[in-house]
Simulated scan of single mutants.
Amino acid sequence: MNTKENILILAKNTILSESESIAKLIDYIDTDFVEATQILFQSKGRIIVSGIGKSAIIAQKMVATFNSTGTPSIFLHASEAIHGDLGMVQTDDVVICISKSGNSPEIKILIPILKRFGNKLIAITGNMTSFLAKESHYVLNTTVDSESCPNNLAPTNSTTAQLVMGDALAVCLMQLRNFTSDDFAKYHPGGALGKKLLFRVGAMLENSLKPMVAPEAQIKKVIFEISEKRLGVTAVVDEGKVIGIITDGDIRRMLNDKDSFADLTARDIMTKNPKMIQSTTMVADALNILEDFSITQLVVVDNDTYKGIIHLHDILKEGIV
């Protein structure tokens, strides 16, 4: 059984089994899901997500997704809840309780207490006849035919189904809140994602060199400027305005085409009307422009004033992608 072929078969069957369980969730999206989503959207409090065992781990992920997409949420472990943590539940909070069986002892103790508090209760369960399902105001069905576990014991398909149901709630709430990428950026300022959503071109120019030559500059001066500033390009600036650029590729083509360049100037070999952006442009958007036009640098200009060059290599170093 430990052959490579058997391992491949087991892995593929696990993925197939879980994907089939997820697909069946479509048939379980009903009016309870719609009304539960509306209750969550209209809530003036927070979303309390509770569970025990593997369901508790899914609950924590759900809380993280809600919080990062504009729905304030808190995780409440079902076991700890009945030992003091119920104090975190406030009057306007809506409670989501996750349990495959819906009949665990902790759930049977917790649910009546929450109902006495007067909080709206949403169940995510794979047992529609369970105590949890019967006692909740809304029930989201995550029933699976079986687990991928060969003993049909370890939560696999069931926890994946719970996770997907939580994601469905989160996405619906994002749409109801008109949650945009700008909103998303507020909650993700760090790391590569934060840079992608918040980092602007101007921030990359603060310590960068600013290559430029006059239109009448000799080719020797152009080559020196490109070499010294190490960006592989220089802007051609006339009376403060960018009228063209010269890349190291332009220099190579000139050397290949011309026997002599003693009489040539920057104006003679420059590329007119280069691609330009403003310093307020998002770096991620600048990267998209570079990719769309298959180029490696952009001229940065604010109100016709030359600010510098942003290069593809610098963007990649920042870990934007």
Results as ranks from 00 to 15, higher is better:
Ala11Arg: 10
Lys12Pro: 08
Asn13Trp: 10
Glu20Pro: 00
Asp27Lys: 14
Thr31Tyr: 12
Glu35Asp: 15
Leu40Pro: 00
Gln42Arg: 15
Gly45Tyr: 01
Ile52Trp: 01
Lys54Asp: 07
Ser55Gly: 05
Ile58Val: 15
Val63Phe: 08
Phe66His: 04
Asn67Glu: 05
Ser68Thr: 09
Gly70Phe: 03
Thr71Ile: 12
Pro72Thr: 12
Ser73Gln: 06
Ala78Tyr: 02
Ser79His: 09
Glu80Val: 01
Ile82Ser: 10
His83Tyr: 08
Met88Phe: 09
Met88Ile: 15
Val89Pro: 01
Gly102Val: 00
Gly102His: 00
Ser104Asp: 11
Lys108Cys: 13
Ile111Asp: 03
Ile111Thr: 12
Pro112Ala: 06
Ile113Val: 15
Leu114Cys: 06
Lys115Phe: 13
Arg116Phe: 04
Gly118Gln: 10
Thr125Trp: 00
Met128Cys: 12
Ala133Lys: 06
Lys134Val: 00
Glu135Arg: 10
Ser136Val: 08
Ser136Pro: 09
His137Gly: 11
Leu140Asp: 06
Asp145Gln: 14
Asp145Val: 10
Ser146Asn: 14
Glu147His: 09
Asn152Ala: 08
Pro155Val: 02
Val164Phe: 12
Met165Asp: 04
Asp167Gly: 05
Ala170Ser: 14
Val171Cys: 12
Val171Ala: 06
Thr180Ala: 07
His188Asp: 05
Gly190Ser: 14
Lys196Ile: 02
Arg200Thr: 03
Met204Trp: 04
Leu205Cys: 06
Glu206Thr: 14
Pro215His: 04
Ile223Asp: 02
Phe224Ala: 13
Glu228Gln: 13
Glu228Trp: 01
Glu239Trp: 07
Lys241Arg: 15
Ile243Arg: 07
Ile245Gln: 01
Asp257Lys: 15
Ser260Ala: 13
Arg267Asp: 14
Asp268Ser: 14
Asn273Thr: 14
Asn273Ala: 15
Pro274Asn: 10
Ile277Ser: 01
Val283Asp: 03
Leu287Asn: 11
Asn288Gly: 13
Glu291Gln: 15
Glu291Ile: 13
Asp302Gly: 04
Ile310Arg: 00
Ile315Lys: 05
Leu316Phe: 13
Ile320Gln: 09
Ile320Asp: 01
